[in-house]
Computed example of a mutant assay.
Amino acid sequence: MLKVLEQVESVAYKLKLPQELSRVHNTFHVSNLKKCYSDDPLVVPLEGLQVDNKLHFVEEPVEIMDREVKQLRRSRVPIVKVRWNSRRGPEFTWEREDQFRKKYPHLFTKTAPSSSEKLNRR
């Protein structure tokens, strides 16, 4: 849990951060801090969280949930519905299959059947 170490100025606070967040600047202007109204203590576990060099959370795709073909004016684009391991809970996005396959080929060993394949099975 983060604790306020000291009030640096009337508008800035220095926070005591755990060692895992040592790359994060620990002094914040009050406009960047938000009050948290909660009955339970708000604790975000740091295990399993990955942060890149720019201190952005790294969210990885977990699985491909569905496939479709998006019909544009002059072309058809295969897309896949992807489930991500988001820190906010389950999150899904639609991505272009060709671009996604290049970046995450391991997810295409077992893929979900397309919507049309599901209909044909019935």
Rank of each mutant, 00 (worst) to 15 (best):
M1S: 09
L2C: 15
K3R: 13
K3S: 10
K3W: 05
V4I: 09
V4H: 07
V4R: 09
L5Y: 08
Q7T: 10
E9Y: 10
L15M: 03
L15P: 04
L17M: 02
P18T: 07
Q19A: 11
L21R: 00
V24K: 09
V24W: 04
N26T: 03
N26D: 03
H29E: 03
S31K: 05
S31E: 01
N32Q: 10
K34E: 14
K34M: 12
K35V: 11
C36F: 08
Y37T: 07
S38P: 04
D39K: 14
D40Q: 15
D40G: 11
P41Y: 11
L46D: 00
E47N: 12
G48Q: 09
G48Y: 03
G48T: 04
L49H: 01
L49K: 01
Q50S: 14
Q50K: 14
D52A: 07
K54M: 12
L55M: 09
V58S: 13
V58G: 12
E59H: 02
P61H: 11
P61K: 13
P61E: 07
V62M: 03
I64P: 13
D66L: 00
R67K: 15
E68G: 13
Q71L: 15
L72V: 08
S75D: 12
V77E: 01
P78W: 05
V80K: 12
V80T: 06
R83N: 06
R83H: 03
N85F: 01
N85H: 09
N85R: 15
G89Y: 06
P90F: 00
F92Y: 11
T93C: 07
R96L: 10
E97L: 05
Q99S: 08
R101M: 06
R101Q: 10
K102E: 10
Y104S: 08
Y104V: 12
H106D: 04
K110E: 14
K110M: 15
A112D: 08
P113A: 15
P113D: 10
S116T: 14
L119P: 03
R122N: 13
R122T: 10
R122D: 06
